[in-house]
Design a protein around this nucleic acid. Sequence first.
DNA 1: ATGCTGACTATGT
DNA 2: TACATAGCCAGCA
Length: 126
Amino acid sequence: MSPLYREFARIIARIPHGRVVSYGQVARMAGRPGAARAVGWFLRGLDPGSGLPWQRVIGGDGYLRPQAGGAAGIRTQSKLLRREGVRVQKDGWLPLSRYGWDGSKRGAGAPKRSARKRAGRPRESD
DNA sequence: ATGCTGACTATGT
DNA sequence: TACATAGCCAGCA
């Protein structure tokens, strides 16, 4: 395990209960902007019993990534998040404006990127 | 060392 | 709005 991965693990472990961050954000916090894919690779080989809240890492657009263990993985992830009080929509989307973790402040969670400028325009129903 | 792949993102058409 | 490409970083053949 490389130091970079340990940094990833530390950051992910710091994500507050009921909050989420994107792969890109984790990479950025680790001082390696652009290494979002490396974060994915890291989580892929992560030990299930590591105790790391991997479910709090989602796509930068607010959508859970289908590759996370297939459909079952998505279901597991959304279940874990809901269990933390995060309202994940049926299509796997959640409002980053509400659950996104800034990484420095807490509760703020005001991502610069527009979390809801996508197609389909999922409703927050919140 | 070179090239392909992947739990990613940003930009272009 | 939706699909296609191009960078990005680490692991593996």
